[in-house]
Design a protein around this nucleic acid. Structure first.
Lengths: 346, 346
DNA sequence: GTGAAAGCGCTAACAT
DNA sequence: ATGTTAGCGCTTTCAC
């Protein structure tokens, strides 16, 4: 920031035209004499001009930025906020969301503004930032079912798209996965390969995806003659998967099939199984969920239910840009189909 | 965005004061009659006023935002850009950077604007965005030593702080780790526990951290009487660690100690070792680097060299905010000390 | 096709 | 302590 940055005015003077003309050239308005366009472009080059974003935003009312908000329900104490962000990134899931979002945004010269809303304070701040126009809209990934943020954003009239259907209806667009179908695939695969004693490690039950996966799993099991399925609740982390499997194994030593609600927990399940001398998949078959990097990293590689997170996130971003541009006005939902990926663990 | 948002003017009218007074109340300027402050605050409440960020930025020349740029050196083809972002997030490293950055930014009501600069096109775009004032400064995490972006940002006068020292000197602040010291610790630990045939899996040698770790490792080995250390180059990924270990094992079946330049590769090393029937640490001791989530997830848990990524990232963010505020003007470097974390693998 | 001029909503001198 | 006023740099009618 050595000297004062050149403005439109400077370029106009240099090119011998009016500010309006320079502005037109920059914004690609057709009705400018090609010869003049060249003159202007050279003047821009010579002056090293770069348009001022704030000034432009003030009049266009666009920032070319969208907020990507990772939102929790709870009232995390202020001092625990960092633990939240650390945990969010421990799961490969969030990285995939970013990848998908960026894939859509990048060709449009937009960037995501990263926000975390895990306490009352940070939630309020995120809401304020959006109301102040820090971003043109919001992409919200909630880690809990009863997240209050979506409703707040909807009330504030902020264009918003959610990852996952909100537990209470909110007039917002969202993308989601047919979790029940995915869980059904897992159950059928386990059953079809001859497992008799099947258990499941669920995700945190405060997350609707966890509930759906559990419900779908139970449904199918019941339909296939297994009314009772032992359950242990995990927290979508590796550790919690290990703990859950330990418990399950203690109560049901004869287990021969496990469905874990995500790959990270499935990985923990496999580790415990191996430590206890059970071979996967020979003694116990294990099916995960997500098809994340953990599925491939796991020994043995996981048979899992694929959730196309990147595509879902891309579509989420697309819906948002459409809402922002006004080409889409009604809330829309897009539900993706899961897919069974068979590897070695089951 | 139902009806027109209220402006300062509206609040002023509602409160029966001037715009300036409302502005003062909002910005916490002391010299306002407490009684009037209340009146104004109520008017704000009633009107549901939220200050317009763009308008404020235009005059303050601040966006309260910093760019967090993940930057590659190469000319990635456009169609491979998504692969880059996907790979970046596969390593827990980047999540830790975000965590540390956010820890510093959040209390200051700032947010990171995420950018990827992995091709000539995206690098140019990132530079443009900064020149246009999309953010007040940039935090750059380069994945390659000869990344041209830092120099470009320095030339453009954009306040910038780097994670890792640039290969060619650039007048910018940076944080880094004493990689050589870390590698030395790894070598000494392996030597001290009696390993005789030690090999190393390096990171991609286009990354200066990889070179430093290798150099430090070799130095110490040489000093302790081992002039020759078999080397295989990896790419900081799990797969590459597996491949490298396979090669090493084929050529040096008598290996009894491995230093891998990051935990993800160390995990791959352990997997290959187990598949080949070698016990870790009894037959072969393995030391990783980073102390990331992978170190704990690995079986056995990894002995590793801790890199305090979160703190480094926090300090990086602090340096940047200081540069932006102008309280720090000279480029500064902060070098962190690594620490050996002994777990089960060595 | 091009220019003149009116704001966008805010902050910060300056005046009182 | 408060109000008046002059911009910040841009886009966009509206004339020509």
């Amino acid at each position: 920031m050595s000297r004062q940055a050149p403005t439109l005015e400077d370029v106009a003077r240099e090119a011998g035209v009016s500010r309006a003309t320079v502005s037109r050239v920059i914004n690609g308005v057709r009705s400018v004499d090609p010869a003049l366009q060249d003159v202007v472009r050279q003047a821009i080059e010579r002056t090293g001009y770069a348009p001022n974003r704030a000034a432009r935003s003030l009049v266009t009312r666009r920032t070319e930025t969208v907020a990507l908000i990772v939102s929790g329900a709870g009232d995390v104490a202020d001092e625990d906020e960092n633990a939240f962000t650390a945990q969010v990134f421990a799961d490969p899931f969030f990285g995939r969301v970013v990848t998908g979002v960026v894939a859509h945004l990048r060709p449009r010269s937009m960037h995501p503004l990263l926000m975390f809303a895990d306490s009352a304070r940070t939630r309020q701040q995120a809401l304020n930032d959006l109301r102040q126009g820090s971003a043109d809209g919001a992409l919200v990934v909630s880690t809990h079912a009863d997240d209050p943020l979506p409703a707040l954003l909807a009330d504030a009239g902020v264009p918003t798209v959610l990852f996952a259907r909100p537990s209470r209806p909110v007039p917002l667009s969202y993308v989601d996965l047919a979790h029940r179908d995915g869980a059904r695939m897992a159950a059928e695969h386990l059953l079809d390969r001859g497992c008799r004693k099947i258990v499941t490690v669920t995700g945190p039950l405060g997350v609707s995806a966890s509930q759906e996966r559990l419900a779908g799993f139970r449904d199918t099991m019941a339909r296939r003659g297994h009314p009772y399925v032992p359950v242990a609740e995990g927290g979508f982390t590796l550790d919690s998967g290990m703990a859950a499997m330990s418990d399950l194994l203690a109560e049901h030593p004869d287990v021969d099939g496990v469905f874990a609600a995500n790959d990270l927990m499935a990985q923990g399940v496999c580790q415990i199984l191996r430590e206890r001398g059970r071979s996967v998949p020979d003694d116990v078959a294990v099916v995960g969920f997500d098809d994340s990097a953990a599925a491939v990293a796991c020994r043995p590689p996981l048979t899992t239910v694929r959730q196309p997170v990147e595509e879902m996130a891309s579509v989420m971003a697309r819906l948002l840009t459409e809402h922002i541009q006004g080409v889409r006005t009604e809330p829309t939902s897009v539900i993706f189909d899961p897919e069974l990926v068979v590897r070695a663990s089951a």
